[in-house]
Design a protein around this nucleic acid. Sequence first.
DNA 1: ATTGTACATAGATGATTGTCAATATGTTCT
DNA 2: AGAACATATTGACAATCATCTATGTACAAT
Lengths: 109, 109
Amino acid sequence: MKEEIEIFKALSDENRLKILEMLSCGELCACDIQDGLSLTQPTISHHMKVLQQVGLINVEKRGKWSFYSIKQDQIDRTCDFIKKITTPSKDCICNKFSCDCNSIKCIEE
Amino acid sequence: MKEEIEIFKALSDENRLKILEMLSCGELCACDIQDGLSLTQPTISHHMKVLQQVGLINVEKRGKWSFYSIKQDQIDRTCDFIKKITTPSKDCICNKFSCDCNSIKCIEE
DNA sequence: ATTGTACATAGATGATTGTCAATATGTTCT
DNA sequence: AGAACATATTGACAATCATCTATGTACAAT
């Protein structure tokens, strides 16, 4: 869960979403990304690090350039996580509590 | 895009993720949710408002209780958005810039 | 009407975050 | 070696946010 929170934090920034969009068609170097965003180089570097640390992108150094690419499996895992926690299941945590307001509780099956 | 950023911000908090998980099996009132989290009532209220404002949950008032439930279509739209911006497409923004680093550009088809 | 219950709002505070300027590191070319 | 280029790190600052206490509002039951 902690891991997914960090992923959502990484996705909560307009510039980082734009970066992911830029990478959707294949790898780019940091200079490509800087061309597309009006941010300074250290800020780009910071965003790339955030995306990298949560596993959303890959980095490959070739010569003086760093090439970034999307890790699609992490994207997929993130979507699966969202779906999973919002889908009914017998053993989910909502069984654990109840008050007197007659709310509908977990499916019993 | 702004809308999705707000959704990801809403998903970037452990307690709000727990709340969504609690709601996965059906509606609950605020008191149910407070039972499951060690937070004060105003904090719960704040989180419910955040989730509501980004369209992740529904609120229905019945008597003195407020019943919350997940808006599954918004969950689905969010997943679709993530997949969409990370999937290659001919008209995506990564065609717009280039430097001399020989990065792979958008698929030409 | 009064009291109790469920929830919302306002204001304050400590923590986190996005951004920048300045500087450092590492690579390539002459 | 030295210069030029690509990227990373550091430190600072303004803005945002999660949380709390205190208070307000709305409904229900006595």
